[in-house]
Design a binder for these strands. Structure first.
Lengths: 192, 192, 192, 192
DNA sequence: AATGAATGAGGTTTCATTCAT
DNA sequence: AATGAATGAAACCTCATTCAT
């Protein structure tokens, strides 16, 4: 098995790096459009490369999905760090972070499906990214809790768990289902 | 297209009825064990019948899943009607119903996956069962709301939506994920 | 293997005989409509009996087809015997027989397909009927040949062969294909 | 839908072209040996490739059969063009063409079956090839007719039709069936 | 004798992954 | 490093035939 590019063993050639991006973006697009059953061939076509190239960059379909998930988690983390740098009423800042990340999620709900389908495996494949997300999040929560604006018994893991629930609503189109509403229920519940 | 048994055109022969049950039970078991990608052949083997028999009863994999889902919804509805007949503090009765139904869910979380995977389609295939569930549930909620123990703006559809979130936690095994905890958060949300 | 009804081992009960007819007629109809890939279930449904009943009467799909073919050959033979009894110019009488039998054929061209698909097997399954057909046909041909109106080198087998060709045109819908025209060519071939 | 090779979108890679040939040849062989019910797996095995490869080249069994038929028609056409270039008594040249093409046919009579089974569809899938065949054939016939050696009322379409009849004899093994004899009847009939 | 449910070998097709070019 | 053709293990589904009722 060859060294995967994502492990950054050595700096990539410029064109390889460009392909890497195009594949990831293509994957995001086709999974968003056709769901997880989209085929690697579709990803390749969308990315404008051959299947072989996809496999050179990601040894397996699961690995590709995994990277998409990790990317998303990195965006979440980035947003969290930004929130941390922001001035303002702590609970409001935190609530806005949840709203913002939810918007990121909904952009391609299929990745959400991936997150679910992966189930237990995800924590293994995104350990690092999860921690990078949890660190600033925990700090934001601590601030809000110290200010007496957030339930003191809620933990970062609870947030992941509850937000997974909100994501589930995104992929579901039940009668009267509305993830914005779901999210506001969650935020309300966290308050005080 | 052949008449599917589920349409109850005519009373089934004794052996057919028995097989129908065995198939459904077998399906529940293999989906619980191997997830949704379990194959019809596996279902057949587990049920102790030939593949053809499975296809005679359920023309397609989706139809089989659909029936499993409907069955589950019927159990939910049954529990709701029982709760309605029960004496006691309205909110507590309702909360217990949620807890009880959640336990039913977790028995075979894979069906939950099906519920998710179905997404938008489910409401079409389980219209009737959903209504049978919603009727008593709405009545229970109205009681709790009249007693001032439940948020007055919550609707039955909200309950479905929030419980789907809880189900998502069942299928996910994140760090610190605990659906009991998720459920209690939800119950808290609904209070007053 | 059970005794097939077609072998007339013992007189059939009235209802069995009726079913036998209905099955044969149903088979003729569905094979004519859907071609040879029509299923035994279709035959049974059309005949208004269960599959099991079809199998009681005909041990196999091929046997059913075989009987249909034999029936057709019996009609041909019947027509040939009638022609033999008729007065008139020998070649004309013979040509009319061919035209008449061709009309019988076209009624359900699918049986023709069966005749073709069977290929080499048919002569084994319809030996008797073929002879019953060939006897009067040979006599008719001899008359025409004695009268100097038909090529003297043509044999009964040639007629079967040439008429199979005409049948092929019936099942084929090529551009400009017209079995009436094909048949008249054949009749011309035979003349003097 | 993937681009089928037969559409000649771009020059095939050397190995793909080789496989294309091998598949076609394998198909010809197994259909000749086992008839039309030969399976794609058999074709693949005979060609020494995987099933997937067969499906990459021909999206469906019918497509594969179709190409075989078209190939055969191209050989017929090629022979017709050669005959056109030949010196000699026009009717004799034409008769020899029929004999030659009949020999091509008999090489793998199963394709003939395909031709029949296709029935009405064939003209749609082989329009071009049919015209390529009909053009020189019509010219050869015109010559013979102008020379007063061929019946003036026969058309190219009649030839197709009559030759289909001869082909039927090839696939049938009735008692006394002999396609050479059938063909000579046809040729005789066309004379003058 | 009739019924139709059950059977399961067999058929077509898909698609993640490998490998020759 | 890139390409896309090749692979073949599955997956789904059909249907001639058997067998319990």
């Amino acid at each position: 098995m060859t060294t995967t590019v994502t492990e950054h063993r050595r700096p990539l050639r410029a064109d390889a790096r460009r392909n890497h991006e195009r594949i990831l973006e293509g994957a995001r697009a086709v999974f968003a459009e056709y769901g997880l059953e989209a085929q690697i061939d579709d990803v390749a076509r969308r990315a404008g490369v051959g299947v072989g190239t996809v496999y050179r960059h990601f040894p397996t379909k699961e690995a590709l999905l995994g990277e998409l998930v990790r990317r998303k988690l990195r965006v979440f983390a980035e947003n969290a760090r930004e929130a941390l740098a922001r001035e303002g009423e702590p609970f409001g800042v935190f609530a806005d972070l949840l709203r913002r990340n939810a918007e990121v999620c909904v952009a391609d709900a299929a990745i959400q499906h991936a997150l679910m389908a992966f189930g237990q495996h995800i924590s293994m494949h995104a350990q690092v990214e999860l921690e990078e997300l949890n660190k600033p999040t925990a700090e934001l929560m601590a601030r809000a809790q110290r200010a007496g604006a957030m339930r003191p018994d809620v933990t970062v893991d609870d947030i992941s768990m509850l937000m997974c629930g909100v994501s589930a609503t995104m992929t579901q189109t039940g009668p009267g289902f509305d993830w914005h509403r779901h999210l506001e229920f969650v935020i309300d519940m966290l308050r005080r």
